[in-house]
Design a protein around this nucleic acid. Structure first.
Lengths: 337, 337
DNA sequence: TTGTAAGCGTTATCAG
DNA sequence: CTGATAACGCTTACAA
């Protein structure tokens, strides 16, 4: 830990070979058997490791992928994990930054990743627009938008069928006889939150059910207290909904706590469909009906797309793909008449 | 986005000055007013930005701090945020890696950070020992252990008074008349989990209360289901505890759900002290008694220590500091007779 | 104040 | 297969 790590030059001296030969060996080139052995001995003896900074300067590649997410929470964490699982295999590594839902930080962190010379970027944007990206990103590197599109920017984009799956969830409630259906939405400046509300509206329209504005509550993603509060508000409406659709993980958690506290029985007093609530789903009784997003799949799809682009393959650019979430109906929804 | 960013050489050509002068300007050196203006014009015109990789190679500094945490969860996230707030001010940036509580990954990610040539490391270790560190870290960079010490390794270490605060929490329960006190602990290979259990034991010894082994349950940190299960187990003991101390955030969450589900009234049927459960604490009623750790303070202390070490100031090395957590008694604890 | 030139640790070209 | 050498883009004595 005290001595400075050896360089190729040191290995060259130790072995009597040239720098070029050592470098060739390090990059998988052919070397005489006896030299190979010698080099490997030297590497061990001198505790050598490549200086990735120097290599990066020379090759103009850092073998690093930058990932920008709004906040460290289970949905994004899971996607990133799955992304990493694929990418690490191929020698790439991943640097993840969150911007805490903050507009300024979102740009700053993007700039940070760019300055670290990542070879490609994965972005879950909130406020970020095409003009921002163009200002920050000056080299031509692959960029993939995930979960939400980037406004005014042409790039590969991997989304979830938020609209359709929300439609399906609400449709199930309708088909179970519900007519008074509440929804706890996310902020309408977020694409996924919009889409989920739109699905809710469309289902009402298609089934010719009028929408009671009182039943639509706007909470905050990434804040379970807002789920709690909005659920309380819904429950306190004089003519309350018979079913509530909660549109993300954290808010679902808060809503469950509200329901418990008010001593509301599920599904007898109220039917519920939550979102993405995997760990909770195992715990809560009766078992929670859920919209489940394909987080692992998202990560895998993004990773393989990225690898393709990094190889220079621009087929189908800009790719726009929607992955399917599923509605899982369990015991938290009751048929009513 | 198409053109490759300009280099200092380009600026030199544009301005007719030498590379050295441009470099001097970039690093805050004095330059003739008219040259300054010229350089700034060139930078704008050519869209120049320093190549941090090249700079890093030359200065042998990356201005980056590596942070290794077990998992992205609120306790660690909060510490990292606060750390970043300080560090970013000073021009450093932060790369955070989690190892998902995995022994192999813990070493791999440490190696990754090291290979990225971070200038210093912040580590929350689980399995990591001094011998591992010595194997991986070959340059002499500052290392700070946070929340848990590194076994067999001499370095700066910032901890929380887990033992003392757990003692105090249990003591409060005892002073409120409780004699049958349950505890939901974390895995005993984790330092903080050990300390918290030790505090519980010591309080019992000091107050001459015999410990019922049945009341001691071992869950998993970072897994709310384990909190749920262990709480159920405690409640199903024929002679159940009258109070339970739950020793981290995620397990507290699960435990609350278990209590709600079993229709146990807090604090009438059961008294509870949870851990670190800030957001929950706002929601749950009656208001939850808690052990609150000074997460922001930890981040700040670590950051300023780091900056000191990076300046080469080795005063008090190896520093070992314990920060104080607080017991906050609210309405979830009842006096019994 | 400015410029020259060496060098950080690699990779890549091109002889040998 | 191996080696000499020129880059990569920047900083930093040292000289002018």
């Amino acid at each position: 830990m005290v001595k400075i790590p050896a360089t190729i030059k040191d290995i060259a001296k130790y072995t009597g070979l040239s720098i070029a030969t050592i470098s060739k060996y390090l990059n998988g080139g052919n070397v005489l058997e006896k030299n190979r052995i010698l080099i490997e001995e030297a590497i061990k003896a001198l505790d050598f490791e490549v200086n990735e900074i120097a290599r990066g300067l020379r090759t103009n590649k850092t073998m690093t992928i930058g990932v920008l997410i709004p906040v460290f929470e289970v949905f994004f964490n899971t996607i990133v994990s799955s992304l990493e699982n694929v990418l690490l295999e191929t020698g790439y590594s991943v640097v993840v930054c969150d911007y805490r839902d903050d507009e300024k930080l979102e740009k700053e962190r993007l700039d940070f990743l760019y300055k670290k010379r990542v070879d490609a970027l994965v972005v879950v944007p909130t406020y970020l627009k095409g003009s921002d990206i163009k200002k920050i990103i000056k080299r031509d590197i692959p960029i993939v938008a995930v979960d939400r599109p980037i406004e005014d920017f042409e790039c590969d984009t991997i989304l979830v069928n938020n609209f359709e799956v929300s439609y399906q969830a609400v449709e199930k409630l309708i088909l179970m006889g519900h007519r008074k259906i509440g929804i706890i939405c996310g902020p309408q400046n977020i694409y996924t939150a919009q889409e989920r509300l739109n699905g809710y509206m469309k289902a009402h329209i298609d089934y010719k059910i009028s929408v009671n504005e009182e039943y639509i509550k706007f909470g905050e993603f990434h804040n379970m207290e807002s789920g709690y509060k909005k659920m309380i508000e819904l429950l306190e409406i004089p003519n309350p909904p018979t079913a509530v659709f909660i549109t993300n993980y954290e808010m679902t958690l808060g809503a469950i706590i509200a329901v418990n506290e008010k001593d509301i029985k599920i599904p007898d007093d109220l039917s519920i469909i939550g979102f993405d609530n995997l760990e909770m789903a195992k715990i809560v009784k009766p078992s929670l009906s859920l919209v489940v997003q394909p987080m692992e799949e998202i990560g895998e799809v993004v990773a393989s797309l990225l690898l393709k682009r990094l190889k220079g393959d621009k087929t189908d650019f800009p790719l726009q793909k929607k992955l399917n979430a599923q509605v899982l109906i369990k015991n938290s929804v009751k048929k009513i008449t």
